[in-house]
Design a protein around this nucleic acid. Structure first.
Lengths: 235, 235
DNA sequence: CTTGAGGGATTGTTCAACAACTCTCTAGGT
DNA sequence: ACCTAGAGAGTTGTTGAACAATCCCTCAAG
């Protein structure tokens, strides 16, 4: 053990605990909050109190605010001046908007694909298999996660960092909407097999037909989500 | 005049100067830095010293860092842990990536257009006219700005908030690349007339042909930019 | 020429204090 | 009863100082 001379060791050891990895404290706080929001623990509309979180997380307000800003940029929190940060409540407009961008990106990515060996399709295959497995177990939360992964890996075929990032934000926001709604099975079940069908089309090199199917797929998905949103349990 | 009683008025009056509008100090600092970066006053690779900027802008380090975060998320600054924030130097990969996303969004927006009355095309027309005017004057910086506006207004036809935001970030980043290069005329001149041609196609309702032209347009633009980037004056 | 140990400069994080804003509740006017 | 003004409480916005951690440059030793 090093020499325990003055009282500063308390701070240094505390810092060691906090900065085990190579990221900043703010990033780690953001990661923690992100999972809470994505997991649905914090329902839309919830205000995240600075005072409260500083107390619980043992970080300074400044660091916490930096974490807030990270998540705000990802669309997982909204910031209202002098009022605080909230878990966003997506309106119907937002859902339509999200699907609009989603169709644009995903369909275009598929349409521009050319060479597709089995290696590049591997992550897609894994995601589809995970979805089928989750569906078999009746775990619709896991099925939803696998579905997100499928679409993330789908656009990853484009090999574009910015397309990946844009899609990640998009899907994260969309997940908020899924959490605001209570019936995961109805929203996820049909797409387990449709993901498989899509993958088969891609493996067969029929990109144009895959793009068309994806277009219809997203259209149906949007309609389902909107319908479910209108029967939302609470506003 | 109100009663000048204690000494706190110094701080309050200073605050009034700073917060004239309805945004936070950090946002205003960000706005200031944003224009400097976009305008090209800060060349790519420049490091923005906290100490220095705190001195000049008369804000605290925390506030300045908040502004940094905002701009980092817009892609106008890059943050390296323990090293500070820099004006990004776009690599060739980044240019290709930016044009990849650009083609995806812009072409898809055009392809999905349907009703197009003159009113909705008005902002596009204005941007084209501004570009032609700038070209006539030989003001290629203004021509570049008008070109950005044209494309921003083009995607705005989709009526999607998130598509607008994504495009704004994209074009802002792209502008960095233009500033890193010295020959604005060669990069902007051909597109003044091509913007006009594109607008005519849209006004005529020929969206599919417009999309094809835009595809070729962006392809040419990318090639020009890459070529110019390879002959860059300084690394 | 490479390697490694200072040392100075800069960033990362915390803390405490105060200013400014929002929201709510109450008192007064109509 | 209804609207309006304003006081008060609670929360966010911003500051400045302090110190820890890290980077980078220099210089000497191998």
């Amino acid at each position: 053990m090093p020499e325990p001379a003055d009282t500063t060791w308390l701070r240094t050891v505390a810092h060691e605990v906090r900065s085990f990895d190579r990221s900043s404290t703010a990033e780690r706080v953001a990661e923690l909050l992100r999972s809470r929001v994505i997991e649905g623990d914090l329902p839309p509309g919830t205000r995240l109190s600075e005072e409260q979180l500083v107390e619980v997380l043992h970080v300074s307000r400044n660091t916490l605010r930096e974490a807030f800003r990270l998540l705000t940029h990802e669309g997982l929190l909204v910031h209202r001046l002098h009022r605080g940060v909230f878990v966003p409540e997506l309106a119907e407009d937002d859902l339509v908007d999200l699907y609009r961008l989603r169709r644009t990106i995903e369909c275009d990515v598929v349409r521009r694909l050319d060479t597709l060996d089995a290696v590049r399709l591997r992550p897609l295959h894994d995601a589809v298999a995970a979805g089928e497995d989750a569906a078999r177990r009746g775990d619709w939360v896991a099925a939803g996660t696998a579905n997100m992964r499928f679409h993330q890996q789908l656009v990853a075929l484009a090999g574009s960092r910015r397309i990946d990032e844009t899609t990640a934000r998009l899907l994260a926001e969309l997940r908020l909407a899924f959490h605001a709604i209570a019936v995961p099975q109805r929203l996820h079940e049909p797409y387990v097999s449709r993901n498989r069908a899509l993958l088969d089309l891609l493996a067969g090199g029929e990109v144009e037909q895959a793009a068309k199917e994806l277009e219809a797929y997203l259209h149906d998905s949007e309609a389902e989500l909107l319908a479910a949103h209108r029967e939302r349990p609470r506003s």
